[in-house]
Computed example of a mutant assay.
Amino acid sequence: MAITLREITDENREAVLALRVAPGQEQFVSTVRYSIREAAENPHGNPWYRAVYAGDEPVGFVMLSWDVVPQPPHINGPWFLWKLLIDERHQGRGYGLAVVQQIVRLIEPEGAKELLTSYVPGDGGPAGFYERLGFTPTGELDPEGEVLMRLTLPWRDTAGPA
């Protein structure tokens, strides 16, 4: 199913804030509420975030550092996939892949040559998901010990259809 990325408004805010990862995944991705607060506290990271919709239903949340001047180790970029959350009821349906596809379609025309992300290592974490999409470790860790990964653009999507 196709997804759309929509701004968070007064009309959809509560439904988006209610999105949750599956039990045991909380150590790998923060809540939407925390992510929005983190964006407000870190304007130098040029946060850009959207609700992920399948039809008329919110199914996830995504946040990037949008064309930011990199200031390692605290600001990665210029294009950094800061948060990706798919609600526990909607995981396993290809929405995560579809979000990355949409993000790539948005940033490539802006001149992006790579998309960076990071993940918390651990069993049940997102490392395998990112690797299946073609992200590769950079060999670096961020200050919190997250593994930094890179997706080189243009991207030859090998993960399959959305």
Rank of each mutant, 00 (worst) to 15 (best):
D10L: 13
S65E: 08
A159I: 00
G145D: 05
V147F: 04
R150Y: 02
V21D: 08
R105L: 15
R89L: 11
G92H: 10
M63W: 02
A127Q: 12
I75T: 12
L153W: 07
R105G: 08
I36R: 14
E88W: 13
E110K: 13
A2C: 03
A2H: 08
G128L: 12
G24L: 10
D157N: 15
T152P: 05
G139P: 01
P154T: 09
P78E: 04
Y119C: 02
L151P: 10
A98Q: 06
F61C: 02
T138V: 06
L116W: 00
D142P: 09
W155E: 04
L153Y: 12
Q25G: 04
E26Y: 06
D10Q: 13
G122H: 02
P154C: 11
Y49S: 07
S65Q: 11
F61M: 04
L97P: 01
G139T: 11
E114Y: 09
W155I: 09
D10F: 12
P143S: 04
P126H: 03
L81E: 03
A39C: 15
A159F: 07
A2I: 08
Q25C: 07
A127C: 06
E114L: 03
T158D: 10
R156E: 14
E11Y: 02
V52S: 01
V100A: 14
A22G: 13
L17N: 08
N42H: 12
D157Y: 11
E14M: 14
S30D: 15
N76Q: 15
R132Y: 06
W66T: 01
T158K: 13
D142H: 01
D67S: 12
R13W: 09
V52F: 00
P47G: 05
I8M: 00
D56N: 11
R13V: 14
G96K: 13
A127P: 00
G24W: 11
V69D: 14
L148A: 00
L106R: 12
Y119S: 02
Y49T: 11
G60A: 07
P23F: 06
T9N: 07
G77F: 03
H90T: 12
H74N: 15
G96C: 10
W66E: 11
A18P: 00
N76G: 10
S118E: 10
